[in-house]
Design a protein around this nucleic acid. Structure first.
Lengths: 219, 219
DNA sequence: GCGTTAACTGAACATTGATAAGTTATCGGC
DNA sequence: GCCGATAACTTATCAATGTTCAGTTAACGC
């Protein structure tokens, strides 16, 4: 089943159509990274799947790292969209926080390999490791700022929550950090140790959300 | 300062003294992994630091992965020792849980790179990724079972807590998973995103412990 | 058709983990 | 003292990797 889906006969692109080749490379790289991981996925294999030579890939991406950065940005786009949807449709600040948490966890569990790429990149070069949380002041149109944007949204929601009269046990940014850490711990546990006999997944998700909401709200 | 400390003049080992060379390799590898990370540390560099040729290293370790596994086991030994110390010196079950959490976090922050190797190995081969949480039934004398042992101890402490009459919101193993996930999220956040402007570290540690203790104890 | 140049290729490089095959030097036994 | 066995080690080499270089092909405007 896997492996055949996107082997393209290729053929040289028309003039001005290079960007479609770029998309093909991104798609193939994404699939291969998910199947085999970052290190095991070679430039040659990506090129093979697309149907071009390895050096041709360097016409579209500076190096393997740049390819990865482009993929990370794609991934974050999806999460940020989901958060936007919540902000648009949910009015109650407390409910927003819970829904944010749920969305974050679902996103991670639905895109475990993209999540790994961005939030669990402990063994790939420093430049990529930092992608998730570059300083929020960076130009958001540049690649690699998604993580900080997501966190900013959470702090924003928590600030609204406080502004709406709810008392918090810590400042909004500290609350955001604690919540994010807990949710991240949950997601990364499922992703990194899938063979571990965890308790019921839904129970753990609900439990983690409950614990943190209860923990940051002043009784 | 770094780099010179352990360059040994080497010289061939006496017969039967091979194990000391093995220790030298472990030490050099540990230093280099911490300085440069797993991928950037080459077999040749490790051999250089020890003062032997690269193939000589293969007399003592099957491959690079086996070297890493040996280091992980060393690391876990230290954490398990710290936990044993708590179980020996702290009587109150609730206090034990808190001390366990603190010990776990301190251990992670004091050994960030070892922690990365064992708990955050998202991009190194599967065999190593699974080291942290192999099935608890495995032979504990074999390399690579440290993670599961640590978790078992936490569940044990929580079971005692429940047996001592304290009511929990979830079964002990679920409580253990939630606590571990939260603490792991905290530690891995500090390790993977050291440049992020986190709130005060001690506040976050205390906050995370408070949140989880409060969260698992029935009010 | 013809020149420009975007799109692409083949050969090559340095570095990597790892192996094969041979060398050296230590040590027990005489 | 030396000799044979073998632990300890080396040099040469391998295939695979990311990447670059120098060239080739073909699409398109004129």
């Amino acid at each position: 089943m896997t492996g055949f889906s996107t082997v393209l006969p290729a053929g040289r692109k028309r003039r001005g159509e290079g960007h479609t080749r770029r998309e093909e490379i991104l798609q193939a790289a994404k699939e291969l990274f998910l199947e085999q991981g970052y290190d095991s996925t070679t430039i040659r294999r990506i090129a093979d799947r697309v149907g071009i030579s390895a050096p041709a890939l360097y016409l579209y991406f500076k190096d393997k790292e740049a390819l990865m950065l482009a993929l990370c940005d794609q991934t974050f786009g999806h999460l940020i969209e989901a958060i936007g949807e919540i902000e648009r449709t949910v009015a109650d600040p407390l409910e927003r926080v819970r829904r944010f948490g749920e969305a974050y966890v679902r996103f991670g569990l639905t895109h475990p390999d993209e999540y790994r790429l961005v939030f669990l990149a402990a063994y790939i070069p420093e430049a990529i490791r930092r992608v998730g949380h570059r300083a929020p002041t960076d130009d958001p149109t540049k690649p690699g700022v998604g993580g900080a944007l997501v966190f900013q949204r959470l702090v924003g929601i928590l600030t609204e929550l406080e502004a709406s009269g709810t008392k918090l046990n810590y400042p909004p940014d500290t609350c955001g950090e604690l919540c994010w850490m807990g949710l991240h711990g949950l997601v990364s546990a499922f992703i990194l140790k899938p063979e571990f006999p965890w308790s019921d997944r839904e129970l753990l998700i609900k439990g983690m959300l409950d614990i943190h909401l209860k923990g940051i709200l002043r009784a």
